[in-house]
Design a protein around this nucleic acid. Sequence first.
RNA 1: GGGUUCGUAGCUCAGUUGGUUAGAGCACUGCAUUGACAUUGUAGAGGCCACAGGUUCGAGUCCUGUCGAACCCACCA
Length: 726
Amino acid sequence: MKINRKNIKHNNFKNQKEIYDFWENEKLFRANPSSNKKPYSLLIPPPNLTGELHLGHAMQHAILDAVARFKRLQGFDVLLLPGVDHAGIQFEATLDRKLKKKNISKEKLGREKWLEEAWKFKSEVYKSVSKTWRFLGLSADWSHEVFTLDEGPRRAVFEEFKTYFEKGLIYKGPYIVQWCPKCNTAIEDVELEYEERKEKLYFLKYGPLTLATARPETKFGDTAMAVNPKDKRYKEYVGKVFTIETLTGNRKMKVVADSAVDPKFGTGVIKVTPGHDFVDYEIGKRHNLPILQAINKDGRLTDLAGKYEGMKVMEAREKMLPELKEKGILIKTEDYTHNVAVCERCKSIIEPLISEEWFVKVKDLAKGAISVINEDAINFLPKNYKKILVVWLKDLHDWCISRTLWWGHRIPVWYPSTRSARSGQVAEMKVSLESPGKGWVQDEQVLDTWFSSGLWPMSTLGWGDQSQSGKSKWKELVKYFPWDFEISAPEIKYLWIGRMIMISKYFTNTIPFKVMFFHGMLRDLQGRKFSKSLGNGVDPNYLIDQWGVDATRMALYTYSIPGRDGRVSKDLLDERGKNFRNFETKLRNISRFILELKPDSNVILSDSEESRDPSSRTQDDNKENFGNKWIMDELSKTSQKVTKNLEQLELHLAVDEIYNFVWHQFADKYIESSKNRRVEAQPTLEHILKQVLILLHPFMPFLTEEIYQKFGVKRKSIMLEDFPQN
RNA sequence: GGGUUCGUAGCUCAGUUGGUUAGAGCACUGCAUUGACAUUGUAGAGGCCACAGGUUCGAGUCCUGUCGAACCCACCA
């Protein structure tokens, strides 16, 4: 690249915002689909639109940005695509809580008005996310920014739904689902958490048999008893029907034999409640048992419960115990500790129940995903996540994709009348993005957030969008897909990563990304996750205020090892932040020494990059004297290692290398020894400094740009430099 | 019950395919300081690399087992 010195402006930036604006105004973050440079694409995991970015996000984004900047310096056409996710349940719950405080009820507002509020709230929350991104120096291509509910993704999601529908992979029907009574919607297995609870195990008399249960209140929904077929104790009872007292009259129940029953647990007999338990549902299906609904969607008992009708589950359990005892049904209780499923979002106890929902048959999708993963088409970091995902994919059950919410992609299914909509008449419905005509009513439910997130690698590049704006993007899809780099927290490996692989393979017959980087989780010193309720989190904005962006980024890179959790506290992060802030000061001082305190200005200003030969030997060049040759060798070794580390995505090692070189080789040894031959060493000093800045730029973008601007001979921005070739 | 990962200095952690004397930051001790830099320099102390076997010329690194910690998955009613 020819340097035209006349065009070079020395920028004296007042603050980091000015630097960021300079980059943005110069369009240095923009990808260029028509350039002949080799593409390198990175997809930012869309953060949930629910609030502030936390420390984990900051680390994730710092990693993405370092890789993107590195690849740009290497001469790639880099696309770092930003976007945010509408985060269905979570967003809706947050907004409802907010509205409740203002005494506005959702029902009163109605769907349309509520959605207006939602979009307002969305842009409010988005501002804080966007601000933090810029704060961190994220070099994202803002011209490509996407929101999951935008038109493009909406059309892509429709395409996805329609295809499944036409291929017979989508069905609607009653099925047992994990139901959150508080969020009032079905949720997926992967959306639940387990909490250890100390409860009781109740031993109840059912006809001639005694069985153990933790949930006596589901008694009203029992339709059978079951034992293990190999259990000799109960052989004579199998197939026989007994009359069982239910507290609301007698019910005839059969004893069935099913291998799902563990003969070692309790008495070896279970009551079967197909309407409110997953195992029981399966047993029921195998033995053709009737299903009774004993618990409603609001978590209260139904009329089956007689005088207990309307009571919440826990209340009913307490209240019915005396009656059970009195009637001789409750024989004894034992202390019992077990895991209770709770909603990941609101922590309320999940009620398995039967609900009319939409499902996707995932068997073929999963098979495809397994095949691409086994072909090693995706480079998983760490490697073992490959196996973990395959195991999960192997016995995946059908995906419940409907949610009883308003915030999301509404299911693109229409019914000819309100009545057929209510009864969900499958035969009459039409799949369409827009209304098929007057009188048609759209399905009330929306799609699971992950239905659209799973499509993210494609929908962000215009896939499935038949409109003009979608078609104009096809070149980008060809150029940037599959993505070169994707990063994620391990906790959403199934929810998101697994889905993306399945969906991408199904629709494009290829992988969604070439590198899948799972960073570790940042935890507190006791190894617990950060959470609002524990208050153990560390706010990235605090660290940035205290130590600066670049130092904060550096501190985070030291925790960026794939799959390795880091234990941190405010003190520990302050320690590292301070350490790298000191490093920043060191580098400022080095540059002041080299660029501002020059021995003789005539000697130093060389005219072009080429005319200088920094590797020329000094008179007394040997190891002990730390001469030019020595430092050039050290630099070369360092840049080789840094390049290798970056290529292998070992950012923590790269940071370590540069840190050590700058401080302990360059500053402590070379600069010290150069003081008595300053004039002769000056070209080398400048050369090394500039190379150091380039090596460091992916990690400390602001500082390196700031110092770079002080060079006499330079390009417009350090972002336009070339990464040292080795 | 199945799976994964970890155990290295007082603390938080690095240690790339096995290869000199096992490293960093912080903390600690001595010394220096009109210096580009005290947000510094320099010297140092601190480790049976969890434990026990094995493979090897050679093991923090590979294999087996034991103990300890954490996480994920699963239909323990």
